[in-house]
Computed example of a mutant assay.
Amino acid sequence: MPTLLHFLGLRVVVFLNDHRPAHVHVLGNGMEAVFNLACPDGPPQLRENYGFPQTALSKIASALTTELNLLCAKWRLIHGNY
């Protein structure tokens, strides 16, 4: 699973054998959240949350929005079309 981004002590990853729509898994501190990227225009939308408090989810969504172009480009390199 390639790590696409690090921030706030978290890793943003894409699984190599994953499915559409374009999405990322945010991992850290024993927690995981999955965000659909809504490529190419966003904004990322929370799909699943396993343990992150709402304040952290807001910060994660903001960081993913800031890096949306990069994340969508990397998803496309790994999986093809969004």
Rank of each mutant, 00 (worst) to 15 (best):
G28R: 14
T3G: 04
F52V: 05
F15N: 14
G28D: 15
E32Y: 03
Q54C: 03
W75K: 02
L68P: 11
T55A: 13
F52Y: 13
H19S: 04
A73S: 11
C39Y: 03
H25Q: 14
L27F: 08
L71I: 01
Y82E: 15
V13R: 08
F7P: 07
H25N: 07
Y50E: 14
P44C: 04
Q54L: 03
P40L: 00
H19C: 01
L70R: 12
Y82P: 11
N69Q: 14
W75E: 02
R20L: 09
S62Q: 14
M31V: 13
H79Q: 07
E67D: 07
H23S: 04
V26I: 03
H6F: 07
P43G: 01
M31D: 15
A38L: 07
Y82T: 13
G28T: 15
H19P: 06
G28Q: 15
T55G: 02
N69P: 10
I78E: 00
G30R: 09
L70V: 03
P43Q: 05
W75F: 04
V13S: 01
N81G: 06
N49S: 13
H19F: 04
G80C: 04
I60T: 03
E67A: 05
E67N: 09
A56W: 07
L68K: 06
A56D: 12
V13D: 01
Q54I: 08
T65K: 08
L16R: 08
L16P: 07
P2Y: 09
I78P: 04
N81M: 06
N69Y: 15
P2A: 06
L57V: 13
F15K: 09
L70I: 04
A38F: 08
H6A: 04
W75L: 03
N81A: 11
H25G: 06
D41L: 02
L27I: 06
H25P: 11
N36S: 11
A73L: 06
V24H: 03
F15Q: 13
P2M: 06
V34W: 12
F7N: 01
P43A: 02
Y50M: 04
L77R: 14
L57M: 10
N29W: 13
A22C: 10
P2K: 12
A56F: 02
C39A: 04
N69V: 11
F15T: 06
P40S: 00
D41W: 15
P2V: 05
V34M: 08
V24N: 02
T3Q: 11
T65Q: 12
G51W: 14
A63F: 10
H6N: 13
V26G: 00
P40A: 00
A38C: 08
M1P: 04
C72W: 01
E48I: 10
V14S: 06
I60H: 02
G80Q: 09
V12K: 01
S62P: 11
Y50T: 10
V26A: 00
L16Y: 04
L77V: 10
L71S: 00
R47W: 10
F52L: 07
N81K: 05
V24I: 03
E48L: 12
H23A: 02
C39L: 06
P2N: 10
V24K: 03
L64I: 09
F7L: 00
A63S: 14
G80D: 08
I78S: 00
L27C: 05
G9E: 07
P21E: 03
G28K: 13
D18H: 06
C39P: 07
G30P: 12
H79P: 14
G30M: 10
R76P: 09
N17K: 03
N49M: 12
D18V: 05
V12W: 00
T3R: 14
V12T: 00
G42I: 08
N17L: 05
